[in-house]
Structures are given as C-alpha cells and as structure tokens.
Design a protein around this nucleic acid. Structure first.
Length: 415
DNA sequence: TCTGGGGTCCTAGGACCC
DNA sequence: TCTGGGGTCCTAGGACCC
C-alpha cells in the first residue's frame, strides 16, 4: 500500500558493515564468524570494519587493532581488498542511479538520493527505497536506508535500524523524531562541539532547536544557527545530481610508520615516497595544484603543517616534492621522532587557466623541468603495469620496509 | 608494545593594499 | 603628527566525517 508523501523526500543509503560483508561474500568459509578488516595490531593499525559477529565482542570501527585483538582474539583478520570494494560500491551506486538521477555519493558505502514524488517518478518514496534494498541484496550484500524530508533526518534515520533497516520519518514528523535524540547523533556535532553544548545545558536536539540562533552564532560562528535549523528539522537540502560531480579540493597521502623516524635521511625519503603517491593520483585525476602542504605528526596529539603557495600549478612530484623538502626545516629538526609524514596538493582552480603567475612558466624558478615530468609519467606507467610497489625514486628505498600497512580508506561508524 | 588515511569546512591572525 | 577601516590573500590549526 502506497504511503502518501508531500514535499521533498531524501534518502540515505548505507551499506551494512560494507568491507566485512564483501569479504564474507567472497569467502564463504568466513560467513557467520567474527571478521575484522583493518591494519595489524603490531603496526599501529586500526579497525576499518568489523563484521556483526565481531561487533558482539565490542569491536568497532576506528578502534586500535591491538585493542580489538584483545577483545576478540579468535577473529579472522584481513587487510582488505580496496579494488574489490570499489567494484561492489560502483554496482550499488548504479542501482540507486537507475532509480533517481539525483544521487550524491558521500563515501564508498554511503549515498544520499532524492526521490521527491513527482520529480522523477510518481511512485511512493518508500516503495523506491524497498526496491533499492531488494536490488542491492541481489548482489549478496545488504544496506540500511533512512528516509525523510532532508539530509539530516535521512542520515539519522538510517542509523536507527541496522542491518537491513528501513526507517521512514514521514513529512511533518521530523521535529518530533529528532527532539529526544542526543545532540551527538547529528552529523557535524563531534566530541568537542558536543561537550561545549552540554556545558551550555543543551543535551538533546529538541533543546538545541529551541536555542536563540544569535546566541549560538556568538558561541559557534556560522555553524551555530545552522545547527539550530538542522536540529529543528527545517534544513532544506539539495542532493547533487549524478552528472555534476563534486570539485576535488585537495589530494594528499600520508603514512604512519611502525616505528618512529628519527634521522633526516629517513624523513626526507618518506617525503619523496609520499610525494610520488600524490603525484600519481594527481596525474590520474588530471589535477594540478599550486598549494603544497607538508604534514608531520610527532605523537598522537602533536601535528604540524606548513604550506607554500606556488606561482603556478603542478602535478609533478619532482616539483612539489622538492618544495615539501624545502619546508621541512620549518617544522622539524633532526632528532625529533616522526610518527607520520604527509604531503598534500591543493588549489586546483579547475576552470582557471594553467597560468597563475604574471610571468611566463619558463621564467619561473619553480617551473617543472619537462624531463623530470616525463620521468614521473613513465613511473606511473611502470606502477600501473607491475604494481604500486614496483618502483620508487632513489631516496625512497631506504625506508620502505618501515612503513605501516597500507590501508584503504576506511569506513567508520560514529564513535 | 596504547589510535589510520583521505578528505571538507571554518577560524583567526598577519601582511598588504587602498 | 601617530593610527581608521575594509578587503583580500596567505598560513596554521582545529573539528569533523567516513
């Protein structure tokens, strides 16, 4: 029976324990057993995804692996197969896109979609959600969906029932749905903001919704009044169409080392190594940026970054990597242990021309040497054919055995 | 032998210009 | 004769998300 629906309808689809579910699909012998996808306990790894069987032991995403191992020593452990997850994710997104052109992917396992009646189809939004769930299930994995009048409601609803849940908040009921929930259940409110709100005596979304926007603006800046609107269920969200992809703002890579780096040679080799990863990705994405960021983490709470704006855009690690090398002394002196090294490139300015500088590229001291860039492109080719580990530049070689596990981008539950 | 990696957005201070 | 105000860019860091 169709449920009548007035006004906007936004869904949030979340794949249940995605990485672990794909592993269990591909390895029938792992089904029904505690399974953890994540980095190894000995190398400062964390849990990326735990199967529902492992969650019973208290294991959850983002938990340090050593802790997970203690809670569930019998768990099957895998480092994950990112390419395979990507492939499954693409199949799922194609299903959703087949139902509505307004599909905004937020991560490998999550997407908002717009099923406002009359916009693309006259069908009930609830029926469309049920069909998406059934079609995804045919792939051998499952998803949970939240449905409401905007993104905030859809997102929170999707988390109410898992796995395989469909939580519908009918139009007009959003304020009542949100009111009793703790402020932390709304995305955008993390531990810092959550604590500050509590100190102000605001514990639930209902209490947040009743706040004076001016007062919240004084306390939280532009985010304050937005929080109030969202908590009241009044947010008006736009779901991007599938053919208007989001502009990428930055591309970066970082590595945490199993053991801290201490010598200059090690740190500089790490910068080269990480820069090469960034360069390959920039060229694959056809992006050139003019802002270079070097990031070092000394211990769990102390991270330093330095940036430099270049006069032109580049995608060549020989250029931005040597800039990162030049920046190193600004935040590091030999002897300080380094836990993590990161390099990023940003300021792409997609639609602007190549040239930022008033001066020609050839007159610029930072202009990439054509020969070096050719070398970078040739290296991409070798990596593509023989694998990412097939090639590295001179300095790289010295530290490669010290890297921690290369983990795919993770999926983490709140907390 | 205590917490990864890839991102986004916002803020705030300083430099600099008019 | 001694300090205004607005705007923009750059830089560093924090909070948050999955």
């Amino acid at each position: 029976m169709a449920i009548p629906w007035e006004g906007p309808a936004v869904g949030l689809m979340d794949l249940d324990a995605f990485f672990a579910s794909v592993e269990q699909l591909d390895h029938p012998e792992w089904r029904g057993k505690p399974l953890i996808v994540g980095g190894s306990a000995e190398r400062r790894g964390v849990v990326s995804t735990a199967s529902y069987e492992a969650r019973k032991y208290g294991v959850h995403s983002a938990m340090p692996s050593y802790q997970a191992k203690r809670l569930c020593p019998q768990a099957i452990w895998t480092h994950g197969h990112y390419g395979r997850y990507r492939e499954m994710s693409d199949k799922v997104m194609a299903i959703v896109a087949d139902e509505t052109p307004r599909l905004e992917q937020v991560s490998i396992d999550e997407a908002f979609f717009d099923v406002t009646p009359g916009r693309y189809s006259k069908e009930s939004p609830v029926d469309i959600c049920r069909r998406i769930q059934a079609r995804v299930a045919e792939l051998g994995i499952t998803c949970s969906i939240g449905l409401g009048v905007n993104k905030t409601v859809a997102k929170i609803a999707s988390e109410r029932q898992k796995p395989r849940g469909l939580t519908v908040v009918l139009p007009g009921l959003e304020a009542a749905f949100l009111a009793p929930l703790p402020v932390r259940s709304m995305s955008g409110i993390g531990s810092a903001t959550g604590t500050r709100l509590e100190e102000m005596g605001i514990r639930t979304l209902g209490e947040l919704a009743r706040q004076d926007p001016k007062r919240m603006e004084r306390a939280f800046g532009v985010f304050g009044p937005r929080m109030v609107e969202r908590a009241a269920g009044r947010e008006r969200s736009v779901v991007r169409a599938i053919d208007e992809p989001e502009d990428v703002k930055s591309v970066s890579n970082e590595r945490t080392f199993a053991r801290d780096l201490t010598t200059e040679a090690e740190v500089r080799a790490a910068i080269d190594h990480v820069s090469a990863l960034v360069g390959t990705r920039l060229r694959r994405k056809e992006l050139r940026g003019s802002q270079v960021t070097l990031k070092l983490k000394f211990d769990i709470h102390h991270t330093h970054t330095v940036q430099r704006q270049l006069s032109h855009r580049t995608d060549d690690e020989h250029v931005f990597g040597s800039v990162a090398q030049e920046l190193l002394p600004q935040i590091w002196s030999e002897g300080t242990p380094v836990r993590l090294v990161g390099v990023g490139v940003s300021s792409f300015d997609h639609d602007a021309g190549e040239q930022l500088s008033l001066f020609g590229e050839t007159t610029n001291e930072e202009a990439p040497s054509k020969d070096l860039r050719k070398l970078s492109v040739a290296a991409d080719e070798v990596r593509k054919r023989f694998g990412a580990g097939a090639l590295s530049y001179g300095r790289d070689l010295r530290f490669r055995d010290g890297t921690s596990d290369t983990m795919p981008t993770g999926k983490f539950d709140a907390q």
